[in-house]
Each structure stands twice: as structure tokens, then as C-alpha cells.
Design a protein around this nucleic acid. Sequence first.
DNA 1: CTATCTGCAAACCGTTTGCAGCGTT
DNA 2: AACGCTGCAAACGGTTTGCAGATAG
Lengths: 139, 139
Amino acid sequence: MADTERWLELLEEKGGRITGPRRAIVELMANSDRALSPVHVFDLARAKYPKMGLVTVYRTLEFLSELGLVERVHQPDGCHMYLRAANGHEHLMICSGCGKAVYFSGDDLSAFIEKISKESGFLIQSHWLQLHGLCKECH
Amino acid sequence: MADTERWLELLEEKGGRITGPRRAIVELMANSDRALSPVHVFDLARAKYPKMGLVTVYRTLEFLSELGLVERVHQPDGCHMYLRAANGHEHLMICSGCGKAVYFSGDDLSAFIEKISKESGFLIQSHWLQLHGLCKECH
DNA sequence: CTATCTGCAAACCGTTTGCAGCGTT
DNA sequence: AACGCTGCAAACGGTTTGCAGATAG
């Protein structure tokens, strides 16, 4: 709940307006530990704000992602889902059953990446370490 | 070139027929070290087999991927590309400029993953470690 | 000769864009 | 009052499906 207000403040600071649809989406995303697809967000947010349009969901999620509050994650089947952002450089584990997501830190990785980078001559700009499986409740 | 024949043999063993369009796609994929999008495969394959249809590209890539000869990889922007498959459990580095791909092994990782799995109660089914950047030629 | 494969066209699905009206500030 | 935001409808790009004709075995 505290997060909801913090997100809305930041949104306002960055020149955005606080509106009904945005408030509904922010409340949802700031307080969920699952990765949600745009349609899923749409359905959940419509419960709070029935006039919600799917387009507004897309636009708001993009805005939140520009603010660094939300992150777009990739699924093996090619779908995209959105999730509240990590604190710093963390990696991700997502449940294929319910979308529950857990961030974890993999400090060890940077040395490994640097080694690969040197050996191959690649200039590495970003990396994904993402685990897929089933959470405690889903198996 | 040896790979081309090996792929075609396997394809035949699994009940597939060897046809002009398939031969063109197999030659291409078996001898390329880049990740290619379906349209890109389509364009390149059309040089060898002008009547090629895009649909055939999709179907053939899916078939090759079922045979484990080709792998579908994910790009940060959400695009899918296809690439000849890794030998065993290797990880991937893809150049965002030209699609050049390099596999590398990350033996260290399995212990790390097991640890995360134990701590979180997740049953981990698969993982991605994928690096994105620019290859030697592209920067 | 038969079953598979092919190409075309059309359907499809998730996402984006143009636009007129509404709501925030 | 001004500008940003919203919802609708339509466009869009990548992918899939139905089908009739072509082709490998």
C-alpha cells in the first residue's frame, strides 16, 4: 500500500497525471508478486475500474516500465508479462503455473560474464538469467 | 556440408520427406552460425529455391526444432529467431547487430541453480542464461 | 497410387496507432 | 482553459490454419 503511493508520486513527478485507470493498475502491480500478462492485468484492473480499456493497460505498463517500477519479462512460449521491478541487479525465477515470481541475486555471475566476454570478443550489453519451473503451491 | 546430409537423414528417419524447400532450409541452418528470423531464413532460402513460401519456412523450422536440430531463441525485443542447436547444455551469446551466436558452457551454474531451488521451494524445469551484445565485427 | 508437403489466401492474436471526447490540473 | 489521458475502432506484424493441387516414396 505504501508502494502504491510511492509509485503514484513518482508518476506525478515525471509529468504524468493521476487518474482512475492508472491508480487501479498501480495498486495492482505494486502489490503483486506475480508476473501478469497485459490481458490478465486488464481483467484484474477492471474489477476496480470497470470502464478500463485494454489499450490503457498497455500504455500504463509501458509508462511504469519507463519509470523503472515495472519490468517486462519473457516467457518460454514467447509471451510477455509484467512484474514489479527488481531492486538492483537481480535475477528471476517465474512459476509457469501461477506466474509467481521470485527475485534472487547472483553476484557470482559478473566475473563469469567478464571471462566469456574477453574470450569471445563480444561487447556484452545485457544478460538474462531466468529460471522457469513450478512454485511450492503449484506442484 | 556433412551436417546437411546428417540432418536430412534424421529427417527421413523420423518419417519426413526430403523435398526441395526442405533441402534449401536445412543447408542454410546447418551451416550458419547466426540466429535467423523466419523472414530472414525465407529470404536466404529463396535464393536457392525461388518458389519457397514463408509458411513452409515456419513449418520446416518447427519440424527441425522437434528433431532437436534447431533451437528457437528469444530476443530482448520479443522477436524469435532460430539457430542450430547446442551440443548438450550450453548457454548462448547473441550479437544484436548481425545475429552471430556463440555457445559456451557454464558448468558452474548447476550448483547455483540447485541452491536457489532448495531455498525457494521451486521445482526448476528449465533455465536461460543468455548474453546480448555486439560481436567483434559489429563494434 | 497414396500420403505428405507445398503455396496461397484468409484467419488469428497480441500489440500499436489515430482520433474525438473526457478529466486533471 | 489547456493539455494529458482515455476508449473505441481500425491498422498492423508475426504466426497459424484450411484447402486444393503438386510431388516424393
